[in-house]
Amino acid sequence: MTYLVRVFVSLKPSILDPQGRTVERALDHLGHTNVTGVRVGKLVEMTLSGEREAVEAQARELATTVLSNPVMEDARVEITEIAPASPVEAGA
């Protein structure tokens, strides 16, 4: 089976987010004065294939050892099964 894996990485709440603060100030200057608490993170998407349990374990490992710094960042993993392409879509 093939899965779309999304890893959402964000700074832990206790870590200052200068990029988020910059975005917040820019939004304020553009007239969006009701926006507060902006935090900026990253999204990593990848496709993994295999048995679901193995894919989940691999995705969690990648999220915490390669894609994020667990001292400063939180990582959340989302896994969605990708339906196999129909013969028409695959060009058969």
Rank of each mutant, 00 (worst) to 15 (best):
G37N: 15
A90K: 15
G41Y: 02
T22V: 14
L16Q: 12
A54L: 15
F8T: 12
L30R: 06
V23D: 03
K12P: 05
G20M: 03
I79F: 06
T33F: 03
E81T: 15
E61Y: 07
L67D: 03
T22D: 04
G41Q: 03
M46T: 15
V7Q: 00
E53V: 09
A75I: 01
E45F: 01
H29F: 03
G41L: 03
Q19Y: 02
E73A: 10
V7L: 01
L4P: 01
I82N: 04
E78S: 07
L4E: 15
V44I: 10
V7I: 15
G50H: 03
R6T: 11
V44E: 02
D74I: 02
R6P: 01
Y3R: 03
G20P: 02
A26S: 14
V44C: 04
G41R: 01
R6L: 07
P87R: 08
T80E: 12
E24L: 06
P87L: 12
R6Y: 03
V35L: 12
Q19W: 04
G37E: 13
S14G: 05
E61M: 13
A83P: 06
E73K: 06
R52T: 06
G91E: 08
V77H: 09
H32V: 11
R6S: 13
G91K: 09
T36Y: 07
G37A: 13
P70Y: 05
M1G: 12
A85Y: 07
V40N: 06
A90E: 08
S68K: 00
A26G: 10
P87Y: 05
K12A: 14
V23K: 02
G20H: 04
